[in-house]
Design a protein around this nucleic acid. Structure first.
Lengths: 221, 221
DNA sequence: ATAATCTAACTAACTGGTTAATTAACGAGA
DNA sequence: TCTCGTTAATTAACCAGTTAGTTAGATTAT
């Protein structure tokens, strides 16, 4: 049953899984806050309450640790969203549920969204993780979403939008609100991240997307 | 008449304005590519073909130089967009022109959009430039855009959207496409930044926004 | 005893920033 | 117009603090 030896990870073999996990979580936090270039390995070690050399015991180098942080964040996001896509729902409901769920996920996972956003920026200037991330996490979601939209168009429920543009547009509406929140707070004086504003935004996004996606009465094609 | 002494900035007083400008432009490039944390002052000096000490002659420190880079990029953007807002156009045309112009500007100014995006991320974790940037550049644009939208609603041309959400949504649709381009290229296999795709996206964004903004026949309110 | 886990102390390279000296444009006086 | 001191512009060399990564040894479960 391997009873947990209380606390004190001191000494050795005091639960390696836990040490590795602590490092990974600390890394996620630091990388999300400061980026790969800005994050400090010393700070990660300190936050994980572990000697810095242990980072290099579990991970080859900073870049590899960053890659592991990305995998954690992206697979968490993918798993969460795939659940929605697996549901048996009509296209319109599925898209709306997807957007709502994605919105809620980002609202609740600041670290995740920061990390993802940071990596998207880095991808533009050559990230060694781009290929892996895109293929493993984004592509599956993107393909499935594309199918849903095509189904909606075929059934006449949707306008004949191009998924290649519509999908990024949906994501943009959700993601960008959080990205721009600090600036918007200064500009407007209101806190865009307060529960009320977030709820409002959720509704606005769904409204915006619905207006752009669903066919209106008397519309051609 | 001060005839330009050909080249050779060597020696001294070989046109200070030019040195300063060279440093600033180099800084903009480097900061856009690598962020504040990732950019190297040595690299900036090298790119500007200037001794590193000269950076500190014209700018207090790295952070100040970064601030100057931000001011350059943001004011360039603001000036460009204000021209549109100053035109005498009906609300619908003005919004569409604004979005199209913004889109074209970002398509043509990769460095600018990278710098802006990076600063938005940084704002979330306390940037010393946030206040200034928000007040000087974003707020004026935001207020003017809000007025245009209110006018469109009042005239019955627009649905009664909330500018506080609609404006960020518009910006999101334009900005995010470029942010996600590298990832989308890997996911889809197509290059989202090819002239044809960019033109397509421009049309898609205008379509998306129009569909969400303009009132449709037989709509309540 | 052995091998996995973990740490204190160290290092080599890098990085932002400084210093002291050098160069040349400018202007005042001879 | 020539000369020379003053001052802005510019640089080579340097420095102290930081940073990713290493090493050699300690700890402990089995």
């Amino acid at each position: 049953m391997k009873a947990a030896p209380a606390k004190s990870r001191l000494g050795s073999r005091g639960r390696p899984e836990e040490s590795r996990a602590a490092i990974l979580q600390a890394a996620i936090q630091e990388f999300a806050r400061d980026g790969v270039a800005g994050a400090r390995t010393d700070a990660i070690a300190r936050a994980a309450k572990v000697n810095k050399a242990l980072l290099y015991y579990y991970f080859k180098d900073k870049e590899t640790l960053y890659g592991a942080a990305l995998d954690y964040a992206f697979s968490q996001l993918k798993d969460h969203m795939m659940q929605i896509l697996d549901r048996d729902l009509p296209p319109g409901e599925k898209v709306r549920t997807y957007v709502a769920t994605y919105f809620d996920f980002l609202a609740d996972h600041k670290v995740n969204r920061d990390l993802v956003q940071r990596e998207m920026m880095r991808a533009g200037h050559g990230s060694p993780h781009l290929q892996r991330i895109a293929k493993n996490y984004f592509q599956p979601l993107f393909l499935r979403l594309g199918q849903v939209i095509h189904a909606g168009i075929a059934s006449g429920e949707f306008r004949s939008v191009d998924p290649l543009h519509f999908v990024p547009s949906m994501i943009a509406l959700v993601v960008f609100y959080f990205t721009s929140a600090p600036v918007m707070k200064t500009v407007t004086g209101f806190d865009p991240l307060s529960p009320e504003r977030v709820a409002e935004r959720r509704a606005a996004v769904l409204d915006f997307i619905s207006a752009a996606l669903f066919r209106h009465e008397g519309e051609r094609r």
